[in-house]
Computed example of a mutant assay.
Amino acid sequence: MDLQEYFKKIGFSGVYEKPDLATLRTVHKLHVMSIPFENLSIHCGEWNTMDLQIVYDKIVRNRRGGWCCENNQLFSWVLREMGYKYTTLGCKVFNTLKNDFNPFNSHLINMVEIEGKPYIADVSFGVSCQIWHPLEMIAGKDQEQPAGIFRLLNDGETWTLEKTGRKPLVQNKAFTNSSLIDKRVTKTMYSFLLIPRGIDHFLNTSEYLQTSPESLFTQKSICSIQTSTGFRALIGWTYSEVTFNPEEDTDIIEMRDVAESEIDIILKEKFNIFLVNKLTPINNKAAYKM
């Protein structure tokens, strides 16, 4: 594994002399612009592993993306190689169908300390809830980013991340009531404790997420990547391009269903993803919205 090879993958051509906030902001943004959040391996007959070397080869060398256990684990390696002080944390994702947090840590993030101040780095949540830059760990502070306003809350022990977005403006009226459209303006994303977690903590979770029929990731095939103006997503058979329009407090959403013959072309042209095995798209009812 080579840091310069990773930098080439994300298009980072700068030099870094010290682990400062400016460099972290740049690398974080380039990662989410270059590496998709995706779970396609599950729907291609492949297995998602927590082995860092395999994750590195998949994402950096083999033109793929990954889910949080891959993307954020890879990013923790980047942080370590660049000299940042970081702690890996586990998060309970909010389930909109159950209106409650999932009972186990299904999401992996990194807390980075710079000059004594902690920040949350998360390069793998996807779609409209993807942060582009690290968040300051200050309870109650509105932190504006392209996708909306992110806010960390704290009750003394548990931290919760929420986001206030904009009104979705769907261009294709046939998709106005699509289950993929999140019409909530403010949404809860996940909660976490400041307990350091090793990779072993996520092994059972990783297995459950890609095998259980109750898992979001077995019920939906997901691929999303951030763009300079918003994000793209392929969920099941539905391809979407979203443009953030903060001036009018809207997100402009272009959606269409795609034919099987288009799947590989869209993945290559829109996400720079090249699959070895055939993808079987799926979009069953599950708590995942754009």
Rank of each mutant, 00 (worst) to 15 (best):
F12K: 01
I273D: 04
F7N: 07
F7W: 12
A147E: 07
D257E: 13
F175P: 04
V258Y: 03
C129W: 07
I109L: 09
F12V: 03
G198T: 13
Y190W: 07
Y6T: 07
W132I: 06
F274S: 14
N284P: 01
K18S: 10
E70V: 05
E70Y: 02
T238N: 12
F202H: 09
I149H: 05
G11C: 03
V127P: 01
I253S: 03
M189R: 04
T160H: 09
L24I: 09
M50I: 13
V55C: 11
S212V: 09
K92R: 15
V127K: 15
V242H: 05
N272W: 10
V32N: 02
I282N: 12
T188G: 00
R64V: 02
I282S: 14
T229G: 08
A286S: 15
H133Q: 12
L89W: 04
I199V: 15
Q73A: 11
L21D: 06
H43Y: 03
K278G: 02
T211R: 12
I235D: 04
I10H: 00
L24T: 02
K18F: 09
I59A: 06
K163D: 01
F104E: 03
T227Y: 08
F175M: 01
Q53L: 03
R80I: 10
I138W: 00
F175I: 05
V258I: 15
E5N: 11
N99D: 15
F75Y: 15
D155F: 09
R232V: 07
I195T: 13
